[in-house]
Design a protein around this nucleic acid. Structure first.
Length: 373
RNA sequence: GGGUAGGUAGCGAAGUGGUUAAACGCAACAGACUGUAAAUCUGUCGCCUACGGGCUUCGGAGGUUCGAAUCCUUCCCUACCCA
């Protein structure tokens, strides 16, 4: 993997991330495809809207279809017929979201499967091996995504565990080889909750270990949004300038722009797909709830501000109808639209960074984004 | 014409003397959702409200009772069966 920052405007960066499955132009948004599919969106459509990389999830793919199937099928790329890059989350988020089903020890995490209650033990080393079987281009270390709020003492111990696990992941990464002939990078995850001193020591310890990229985790878990920005801005100063920075699980279009300004290159979030399936559509002029009665007779496109399949072909009134009658196409079009919007937004951000107009453009964009349709 | 079963909020449907403005489901209306246990979840849903409450309801009318959607009388309507 090779990462090049091609231009900066203040802290905002435009970069190029080269992987064996293709080039990713940053800043980039990565659609979430937890179980080997971006929910309600086809691979063909992802390519059409300009998706450059998607996510998969180690925990979910380990449970189903399982590493045996993935290996027999030649890895996730081949299995799901997605030839662009894939990043896999380690299951660290499930340590947080499935906290009632797991137990953490120094050695790893014991999960009780949310599917059948069976017990599974995830060690840092095992998580790397699973990701080898998946064949993702970018693997994530096993971490603990601490909840918010959490005591400083808990955050410190949790982060010490995360750093310890990162070392073990790195070791296994060095001692194992890719199964499908393409390079697999390993990114570390900075934790530390909302405590600057812990964030700093976390970042410094991980940078010392020399990973190919660095993620900031443990944010957007309930803390005030200003705190999230503050922690992001604070943390990036300790990260190497020549390596990609990934803000995990973030966020809204506004969050993305604010974070790009603070030096982030990569994002992923379920918002465009999940909220899309629940009727929230993003537009240049703010978000709308397409189920609302006010769209019943609305003949206009979802967003006339950018060129896309959904905008060119369907009205708000029709989308509302699809949601009213609970038709599958509604979920598909909403997800497709939102992802297209996010990807469009990232392309515009990049374009403006390259032109040194990001700061101005972002301000204008934010004003529109918070407006009410 | 005779018989039987019924008529409850937009619809469906509980409730058969008091804790009932009336369960529950659907529809409708609004909200939430940030490394996906989510095509999920929450709230509102007779009328008015200064959110404290106030007012009018269970086919219509009349009655019994301290008290009726629930009991009685009568009328109207619906479905099915017989003629």
């Amino acid at each position: 993997m090779k990462f090049t920052v091609v231009h900066t405007e203040s802290s905002a960066r435009a970069g190029v991330l080269e992987t064996d499955h293709g080039v990713i132009e940053t800043p980039i948004f990565m659609p979430v495809g937890t179980q080997g599919t971006v929910k309600a969106v086809e691979q063909r459509e992802l390519v059409e809207i300009g998706a450059q990389i998607i996510l998969g999830n180690t925990y979910h793919l380990y449970l189903r279809p399982g590493t045996e199937v993935l290996q027999a099928m030649g890895g996730l790329h081949k299995f799901m017929n997605w030839q662009k890059p894939i990043l896999t989350d380690s299951g660290g988020y499930q340590v947080f979201s499935l906290s009632e089903f797991r137990k953490i020890t120094h050695e790893g995490v014991t999960f009780k499967s949310h599917l059948d209650g069976s017990t599974h033990f995830f060690t840092p080393s095992k998580v790397i091996e699973i990701q080898r079987a998946i064949g993702s281009d970018i693997m994530m270390v096993l971490d603990e995504c601490a909840p918010f709020p959490c005591e400083e003492e808990y955050a410190r111990e949790s982060n010490e565990l995360t750093v310890r696990w990162a070392k073990e992941c790195l070791q296994t990464w060095k001692n194992t080889k890719p199964l499908y002939g393409h390079h697999q990078s390993l990114f570390a995850i900075v934790q530390g909750s909302v405590y600057k001193n812990i964030r700093k020591s976390s970042a410094e310890a991980l940078v010392e270990l020399d990973f190919e990229g660095y993620a900031i985790g443990g944010l957007a878990v309930g803390e005030p949004i200003e705190t999230m920005y503050e922690m992001t801005e604070f943390t990036t100063q300790f990260l190497p300038k020549d390596k990609p920075r990934y803000l995990m699980g973030v966020g809204t279009p506004e969050n993305l722009l604010e974070s790009i300004e603070r030096g982030i290159d990569m994002f992923d979030c379920v918002i465009p797909t999940r909220n899309g399936r629940n009727g929230m559509l993003f537009t240049r002029k703010g978000r709308i709830n397409i189920r609302n009665a006010k769209w019943k007779m609305d003949d206009s496109p979802i967003d006339d501000g950018f060129d896309s399949y959904t905008n060119k072909n369907f009205s708000r009134g029709y989308l509302r109808h699809l949601f009213q009658v609970d038709e599958i196409l509604g979920l598909q079009l909403a997800s497709l639209h939102n992802l297209a919007f996010y990807l469009w937004l990232m392309r515009e951000a990049r374009k403006n960074i390259l032109a040194n107009t990001f700061s101005y453009w972002k301000k204008e964009m934010l004003e529109q984004l918070v407006a009410q349709n």
